[in-house]
Structures are given as structure tokens and as C-alpha cells.
Design a protein around this nucleic acid. Sequence first.
DNA 1: CTCCTATAGTTGCAAATGCAACCATAAACC
DNA 2: GGTTTATGGTTGCATTTGCAACTATAGGAG
Lengths: 150, 150
Amino acid sequence: MTASPTPRQIAWARFVTAQAMLLDRIEATLARSELPPLAWYDVLWILENAHGGCLRMSDLARKGVISRSNVTRLTDRMEKAGLVVRADCPEDGRGTTCSLTDSGRRMRARMWLVYRGQIDELFGSQISAAEAASLAQMLERIIENLRELP
Amino acid sequence: MTASPTPRQIAWARFVTAQAMLLDRIEATLARSELPPLAWYDVLWILENAHGGCLRMSDLARKGVISRSNVTRLTDRMEKAGLVVRADCPEDGRGTTCSLTDSGRRMRARMWLVYRGQIDELFGSQISAAEAASLAQMLERIIENLRELP
DNA sequence: CTCCTATAGTTGCAAATGCAACCATAAACC
DNA sequence: GGTTTATGGTTGCATTTGCAACTATAGGAG
């Protein structure tokens, strides 16, 4: 930085570093438990929260903040593993739906056990409830703002 | 989640989503400006803050929160682009040092112009100075805690 | 109805990443 | 000194990701 960094810029830098460190740890812990990577968890979780455990590929991409081609490949692998099923969309001839299987639900639950442990231990333990609430609110604003932009 | 998510878990979820969205945007903006990816910026920034603009490969890995093999490849490309130079470490026959070139310094400055604009616009604009300070402190605790763990 | 454009999803190919195996040197041990 | 163990860095290989091109269907304009 040419001028010395502003408080917001410092916060940004830590934001990136902390997340990188946390994700590294969590991925390693999942791998050690012989569970799939976080990317799979995200898909499973998004589907589980969708009506009927079923979503269009593009919705999956938007909610998961990943590219459409990435969703195709991700669900390819997950379908091979029996966690989701894809089918032609009845309402739109171009579309494909992706839905959670029972095995997918069970896998999400198993992963959550480990994932939750890590979140609580590495992240939650370092912030107060009030801080968590304020942080969530802050981030929500940022997310909302991004969704409104072109 | 089987039980409904705690405030800390909600904060975590937004933490991940917000960062993914922000990084997507920033990478896209850098690419549109025909600048290298963020990963290069991080290396340049870390080197610029090091004494003499020079660090050992493993220090680079630790500070940048990336794997050592990744550092090797990253600096391979950056060296080809003339932004850094590697040399055998004088004090340790096994070691390699990586140092910033003038061109590397200039590139970091050019990237920072764009990067800073994005941070301020997408992140800084949504949080108050007090929130930024509290956030930075919170994240610092998390980072410190992670560094102390095995 | 036909043409034109936009959207949904997949795929080929290139670039990036992680992991494990590897070579070289350093440090510890006897 | 000679052997063993740990550390620093790179490389091969498999996996993952992104981008651009492509196919197919939908929706709108004339």
C-alpha cells in the first residue's frame, strides 16, 4: 500500500487471512474424517433448504456462489457418489433439476457433525454472541449490496 | 443443520458467502483491467513488507497461507513475468530466497490502485469505522488462536 | 409462422491446486 | 566421524477450476 492502510483495509486483510486459515483447517479435518470436501457440503446444504430438496442447476450456482460449469462438474461427482440425482426439468425443456437423495441427506448430517465442531471450536470460541450478531449483520449488508449491483 | 443454527454459525455462513462474492468480483475486475490475479498481489505485498523485499520460500508460504508447492509454482510464473527473482539462500544450503524486482514493486502499486478501489467500494462502504476496528480485532484473535494451535 | 436473441446447461481445453514422493542439505545423536 | 532424522524446496500426477465455445430450448418481434 502506498499510503498506510485504513482501518477498513486492515479489516479486509484479516478477513481474507482468517478465512483462508480456517478453511484450510476445516478441509483438513474433513479429509482426516474421510468425508468429502466443503464444496460438497455447500451443495447438500443448499439443496436441503430448498423446497423438496430440489433446485435448478442455475439456482444452485447462484446460491453457492460458484460458476455454472463448476456446478455441472460438482454435481457430476456427487451424482456418481449417489448423493444427488439430476433430471430434466418438467417446466423448462432447457433446464435440469438437481435433487438430494436420502444418502445425500445422511451425508450432510455426518459432515455437519464434524463441520460444526470445527466452526464452534475455531471460530465461535473466539467471538462473543454479541459480536457474532453484529458480524452477521455487517456481512448481510455487504451481501445484499453485492446482490443489488449490476 | 439438524438443530437450528446458532448466531455464531450464522455469522460463519455469511462470512464464507460474503468473501466468496467479494473475491469473485475483485478477481473479475482485476482481469478486466488486464492485471494478474489476487494470488500474485498477495505474494507481492508480503515481499514488499519483508525486510529487503526478500523472503524464504517457506516464510512466503506461511504468511500467504498457501502450500509450499503452490508457492513454488506461483513464484515460477511470477519470475517468468519478471516480478520476482529467486536465488539460493546464502545461510542455508537447502533454502531459496525470493525477492521483489522493481517491476514487481510497480506491478503491486498498479494492482493496488484497482484492488483498493474494490475494497473500499464493496466492503469498506458497508461498514463503519468502528465496525471495521472491532472486526479487525475479532479476526486478529481468531488468527492468533489458529497460529497457536498444533 | 419464422427469425432473432436470450437463457440453461454441458463440454473441451488450459491453467491452477493439492498430495505424495523425491532430492538435497542441515541438525541431532551415538 | 558416521548414521539417523528433520527440514526446505521442487516435481509428477491426479483433481479441480475457469473460460470460451457449443447445443438446445424458450420467448419476443415482425
